[in-house]
């Protein structure tokens, strides 16, 4: 499944932050988004994942092909590691809980409540969720926050495994995950004149009655 983004413009708080973003991400490939803080990486990823409407342009792959993971892991502190994963496996209709636990090195922690995990362990559990979705396109927003070097390497392996099975990864990160991926520098797509996303606000120019 190919993810194609065409002349996409995205807005945050009514102001267009990126415009004219186009790329294609074929199956089995990875694409890393780079750019300074505040340029709109998160906004772009949320738009691609279907969480907010595009200000202009189009995203070709349906939202039902995409698994999205952001800063917040969506973990429930009072559920155990297995319960947290089993919930998402049931929602996505897969049975990959054991596999995901093994892949993210969580088997020893499986019966522990998520409240008693360290920040890095929580993050690993949050990323394990991607494996139970069974979806081909992963959209990841800074997935390695609070992971140590060993865990980063572990997650790099998981991502490589996903790509070798024909999955693709769109990722915003500052860390080298050790995966083969093209890099898309977002700087050139910064919306020039701070153009307003809505035609209404754009209509406020010049003289005014």
């Amino acid at each position: 499944m190919e993810l194609r983004v065409d002349q996409l413009a995205v807005a945050r708080g009514g102001v267009t932050v990126l415009e004219g973003v186009s790329f294609a991400l074929p199956a089995g490939r990875g694409l890393v988004l780079r750019g300074p803080n505040g340029i709109g990486k998160t906004t772009l990823l949320r738009t691609v994942a279907g969480l907010q409407p595009a200000a202009a342009g189009a995203v070709s792959a349906g939202a039902e092909a995409i698994a999205y993971a952001a800063h917040a892991d969506g973990l429930k502190a009072t559920l155990t590691v297995t319960e947290n994963l089993a919930f998402w496996a049931a929602v996505y209709g897969t049975a990959a809980v054991e596999y995901a636990l093994a892949q993210m090195n969580l088997l020893d922690l499986r019966d522990r409540q998520a409240a008693n995990l360290s920040a890095g362990q929580k993050r690993r559990l949050g990323l394990a969720r991607l494996l139970v979705t069974g979806r081909p396109i992963w959209v990841l927003d800074e997935p390695t926050v609070s992971l140590d070097t060993a865990s980063v390497a572990l997650f790099g392996d998981v991502v490589r495994g996903h790509m070798s099975r024909g999955g693709s990864v769109l990722i915003a990160t500052h860390i080298d995950l050790g995966i083969e991926a093209e890099v898309l520098e977002l700087g050139p797509y910064r919306a020039r004149d701070g153009s307003q996303s809505s035609a209404f606000d754009a209509a406020f120019g010049g003289d005014f009655a």
């Binding site: 039902e64 999205y68 917040a72 892991d73």
Partner: peptide
């Protein structure tokens, strides 16, 4: 609660 821990985002993108 689901909004704060991010699971509302994930529920919206889930296949239900």
């Amino acid at each position: 609660l689901d909004f704060e821990d991010g699971s509302l985002d994930l529920l919206v993108t889930a296949p239900i």
